[in-house]
Design a protein around this nucleic acid. Sequence first.
DNA 1: TGGGGACATAAGCTGGGCTTATGGGGAGTG
DNA 2: CACTCCCCATAAGCCCAGCTTATGTCCCCA
Lengths: 309, 309
Amino acid sequence: MGSVEEQPADGGTGSIAHRVPDLGALELLLAVARLGSLGAAARELGITQPAASSRIRSMERQLGVALVDRSPRGSRLTDTGALVTDWAGRVVEAARAFDAGAQALRVRRDSRLRVAASMTIAEYLLPGWLLALRAGRPDTAVSLLAGNSAAVAERLLSGEADLGFVEGLTVPPGLDSAVIAHDHLIVVVAPAHPWARRRRPLPAAELASTPLILREKGSGTRQVLDTALGGLARPLIELSSTTAVKAAAVSGAGPAVLSELAVGEELGLRRLVKVPVEGVALARDLRAVWPTGHRPAGPARELLSLTRG
Amino acid sequence: MGSVEEQPADGGTGSIAHRVPDLGALELLLAVARLGSLGAAARELGITQPAASSRIRSMERQLGVALVDRSPRGSRLTDTGALVTDWAGRVVEAARAFDAGAQALRVRRDSRLRVAASMTIAEYLLPGWLLALRAGRPDTAVSLLAGNSAAVAERLLSGEADLGFVEGLTVPPGLDSAVIAHDHLIVVVAPAHPWARRRRPLPAAELASTPLILREKGSGTRQVLDTALGGLARPLIELSSTTAVKAAAVSGAGPAVLSELAVGEELGLRRLVKVPVEGVALARDLRAVWPTGHRPAGPARELLSLTRG
DNA sequence: TGGGGACATAAGCTGGGCTTATGGGGAGTG
DNA sequence: CACTCCCCATAAGCCCAGCTTATGTCCCCA
């Protein structure tokens, strides 16, 4: 009926939200897969059976694929349904990590465990730890404050935080620490960039003289880079999140310097290529820290033990 | 104003969709981070500036956190905004993989590249490859058919598919192949399960005599396990997607046997524990396959080269 | 043959998100 | 100093997706 839909072509970029079912629908699909029935899934999510039925059906319409085989004694996934469900699982998993992190940002007062962490750790490692902690101790309210090493130290020493994580080269005075992981900053470019075809390591001087896509001044990553290059890093553009830096690098805007934790997936899929560099030390330790003498106990100890994964 | 909000407590499980902004909002946040302005982000997503403004604001209300600093010359992320944006990036990334896969399931006709793949590969590796392919060749329409090895072979030999991927122990007759990766099935249990504390490898006989959480009969994983155990695997329960099996194992229902590709994240976070097993061969190759003599060319060759990542 | 479990359909409500229209606050320019 | 441009915010109104309640159909089993 009506007029022909104007399909905006949408070549690759462009809003994905219209083509992917929303999180509620994906969650519902997972529940159906697990419980084997639309009605049971609906009960679990606190909606009615017709709501679940209609939601699954509209998801099938949107994707253009049959997802479940309905029968008078339950519903089972089709083959493609099983596939879609597994893909959905990864979206929902990422959303759970998001939720765990966001909840920690919100709950300021009366938290049982107050964590202060530097950016790289808060971005890439903490959400997973929070999920694991929640699995073991569902009632532990955690609050999270992200900042640079100095801010983390200050919170710990003033008693406003119970456990900290820093990624610098040095441990702030007054704190004990334990190394929990190692990190390297790496130079990455889009596959089309000339540096992607270099066979020889890039000299530090050339890195220092080339404009780079960077986080803004004050970020831990930026500080390590500036120190390593002798305060010389030249910004091509300064962006306000690691994700934005990655997006710019992938789009070919120029070389970027990022934690290898940040670009694992991009490297695996060849969306970014690592450029070897010589003559500059870009390694750093990731450490848990706490006020000297106050060994972590209770929930803090619990969290610390998760970081040995 | 109004009454006190009834907070449903919602301890850990329970629908996440109400606490996490929807994909459109997350995408908008990423655009704001990248472009530095609400209006520019709105234009990129094809909505109006007031819509973007209101959406970001309601996201801030939902999360209880300020995300962007607005000024008369643009908007920049706050510190916590940068953190949230990075977390959002991973959700959106998973959604893009979902979309790439779903699109391949849908476009049946006139696809330039028709792929047939077995489940494990379609679940865990293909979406990434499709994203990479789309980045390089945005106009290559790909169709995907998932099935067992026999079905993959049949499609290839009948000319209904250009390139296949199988995960069995043997290569179907009439096909050439190249090993692209190795996979191992592993036994996993929740950390609380007695097997999690075993020091000695589990004898194959004990594995065979213990009821397990399994994919249903006919799945490639199940076949490999049945063969390895001599047709003896006893199901505790049979579920219709890998995700459902993982969820059951994590919840402590019993031991599960899964590809290590499927449980990398769960192992890292200690949500599942690997149980060593002795006396049974659970390794298998992942292979690209094509009709004997018809070396992949064009888009198929392109895709094949991505699999060497 | 009656009951129960599971899914489908229909009708009506509500709210979130979009649009258009309008206003205010810096910054650069003659 | 006014003019203009580029931000962002607010207000009013529309529309559709998704929910609920009520009811129908199918199949299995006692």
